[in-house]
Write a protein that binds this DNA or RNA. Structure first.
Length: 111
DNA sequence: GAGGTGACGACCC
DNA sequence: TGGGTCGCCACCT
């Protein structure tokens, strides 16, 4: 039986499970899906996530440094405001205490 | 059908 | 330490 779920679908599924107030990285999701080097595709999936209904918490996904590299794709500082609303502190487009709020799917979802 | 691109990350000088 | 390169997967032209 063919697995209809693409890498894309799996990415969305993981992002939907990110708890409120938590964040993760593109690479962590890619790694969880078994393709640690596919982080670029995860980023592309986030780009496509804007047309999903309902929208997924793409703002909770940042790069491995905790930097909001994708905020321009949200339009303005919407991404930053969303994160701040969840209790995060953003300075210079970077999440402070990133490791404290880090949510690792490879651990939390434990394949 | 083929080549270029991208919200990344890891490796190699 | 830091700049350059490759890999991966899906989309666009």
């Amino acid at each position: 039986m063919e697995n209809k779920y693409t890498f894309f679908e799996n990415v969305f599924d993981v992002v939907r499970q990110i708890p409120y107030g938590k964040v993760t990285s593109y690479g962590a999701i890619a790694k969880y899906l078994g393709s640690a080097k596919s982080s670029r595709t995860v980023g592309y999936a986030m780009n496509a996530s804007h047309q999903l209904i309902p929208k997924i918490a793409a703002h909770r996904v940042v790069n491995r440094n905790g930097m909001l590299t994708g905020k321009h794709h949200f339009g303005g500082n919407e991404m930053q405001q969303s994160l701040e609303a969840e209790g995060h502190i953003i300075i210079d487009d970077k999440i402070q205490n990133f490791s404290t709020h880090y949510w690792d799917p490879t651990i939390e979802l434990a394949i």
